[in-house]
């Protein structure tokens, strides 16, 4: 049953992705990206990746829509008409896609017990067995992220910080003074 639900959700993802590519209206594309993250989070939940799903739910549905809309406000919500579809470009894209799909053939199957992540030096087994006594939290994802791989998470936090600084320096950091109080309706009707 889970496999069936994941399959249906993933095919929804493909449909949405094609829709996003085809649509010229960028606002519609942003709205569809919201659906994309909804479906992705649903699929993650069914695949048991709860923390990933949580991140997708929190970021994809609300914040990323707002950031995309902010970006649209700076530009325009119509995509420029394409010049011409060049055949070599299409061939190149199809070839790259085929190569990528060929690459996935080597990957372990979903949920496979013999995938390298499970078998390599018994890391996963060790985390599952020992982390309760070594670190404590019942949620092993938390203990891996915050304790075993604390350096990584420190780096990620710094990346988020740096990204925030970068965007703010692009958008401008100027302070602004408070406005006089004019009701919006009055202003619109004046």
């Amino acid at each position: 049953m889970e496999t069936f639900i994941v399959g249906v959700l993933l095919s929804f993802l493909v449909i949405i992705a094609i829709g996003i590519i085809v649509l010229r209206d960028l606002l519609a594309a942003v709205i569809l990206l919201g659906v994309y993250s909804l479906i992705a989070a649903g699929a993650f939940v069914v695949m048991d990746a709860v923390d990933v799903a949580f991140t997708e739910a929190a970021v994809g549905a609300g914040i990323s829509t707002i950031l995309y809309l902010g970006a649209l406000r700076f530009t325009t919500d119509r995509q420029k008409p394409r010049g011409h579809d060049s055949l070599p470009a299409l061939l190149f894209v199809v070839l790259t896609g085929a190569l990528l799909i060929y690459g996935t053939l080597d990957m372990p199957h979903y949920g496979s017990a013999t995938s390298p992540a499970q078998t390599h030096e018994q890391v996963a087994v060790r985390f599952l067995e020992v982390s309760g006594d070594e670190v404590g939290p019942p949620n092993i994802v938390t203990s891996v992220l915050a304790s075993y791989r604390g350096y990584d998470t420190l780096g990620e936090t710094v990346v988020v910080f740096a990204a925030g600084i970068a965007v703010m320096s692009l958008l401008g950091l100027r302070r602004r003074r408070p406005q006089q109080d004019i009701s919006d309706d009055e202003r619109a009707e004046s």
């Binding site: 942003v30 709205i31 939940v45 739910a57 549905a61 609300g62 829509t65 707002i66």
Partner: peptide, 18 residues
Amino acid sequence: LDIALSYALINFLGTVAV
């Protein structure tokens, strides 16, 4: 259900933003 709950809260935000 935590995730469902966060969606129930945040889904509204996207609509309002658009």
